[in-house]
Write a protein that binds this DNA or RNA. Structure first.
Lengths: 161, 161
DNA sequence: GGCTACACTTAGCTTAGCTAACTAACAAGT
DNA sequence: ACTTGTTAGTTAGCTAAGCTAAGTGTAGCC
């Protein structure tokens, strides 16, 4: 409504830049609580997505297995979560957040969200709705694209259209 | 319009997650052309922002000086841009993109945008307008917040509201 | 001439991403 | 019951990009 429907490439460029600049700003807040963006995101998957395996976490975070392994090593060392071997299939490991992890996540969320929310406070309801709708749209698009990307490992751009 | 105007904290959380997931997806496209997100962003500042000093680039990118120095070292080595000492004040260095740098930026843009644009192609005009508007809003918010943050180095969240 | 301030670099650290190669455990065929 | 292959995670080793602290060189000014 605010724009006369620009072409997809234009929108893509703007959205990309906006995402970069937003995250640069929010990263500072994340560090204030001692939880990096990557840890925060992983922890929220574990906390809200219930117990989860390492492979599933890697998928959810769209990163490689080794990346998750190392991320978890640090997080377990810091007491944010713990690994548990599955009784039936002893290859798989279940991740569960510790109370400390859950608490830190909430606190980090609160703080990080407070920073952005303070920025958003000046907006009128229509603008808030705009952002919420856009965020939801982006999540859906990324999720769909990731699914398509799995069957076609490289060059996922060509698969649609 | 798609949502009944949720509260700022809720919106903040959704927007943050969406930004993270979006960038994870786009990073893969950036790598395909050989330009990382950081290089792409810096290069676009140099290309479109005219010749710029290192300090100004650090400000624009919201990163520390040394980070820019190292980023530039790699980019100069790869022939994307060149440093030039200022004649008057020999402390300052002017950055200018090489033809190769400008070309790569355009090509990277095209490719990265193509990937996202392909994802966006299925959207109706209203959704596109939604995203464009949201991106613009985010840019403005981040810019404003960064300006406020300069006078108050830490904890910029408390400054507003 | 010597102090202070500024612009940038160097040095050294951390986190987070990757691939390739490895280990351990399961599943199936024969 | 052995291979053989697959799956889940880890280890090793690399790169990029962020940071702070300290260093270098230039400018500006008493």
């Amino acid at each position: 409504m605010t724009q006369p429907a620009p072409a997809p490439p234009v929108v893509a460029d703007r959205v990309h830049s906006a995402a970069i600049h937003l995250l640069r700003r929010l990263r500072k807040q994340d560090e204030a609580i001692g939880l990096s963006a990557a840890r925060m995101s992983a922890l929220s998957v574990v906390v809200f997505g219930g117990p989860v395996t390492i492979g599933r976490l890697a998928e959810a975070e769209q990163v490689s297995g080794p990346t998750v392994t190392r991320l978890l090593a640090g997080m377990e060392r810091d007491g944010l979560l713990k690994r548990t071997r599955d009784a039936k299939d002893r290859r798989v490991i279940w991740l569960k957040a510790t109370p400390k992890g859950a608490r830190l996540l909430q606190e980090g969320r609160r703080r990080r969200i407070a920073a952005l929310a303070a920025d958003l406070a000046a907006l009128d309801p229509a603008d808030l709705a705009l952002l919420a709708g856009a965020a939801e749209l982006i999540e859906r698009i990324v999720r769909d694209a990731a699914q398509r990307g799995q069957s076609q490992p490289k060059n996922p751009a060509v698969t649609s259209a």
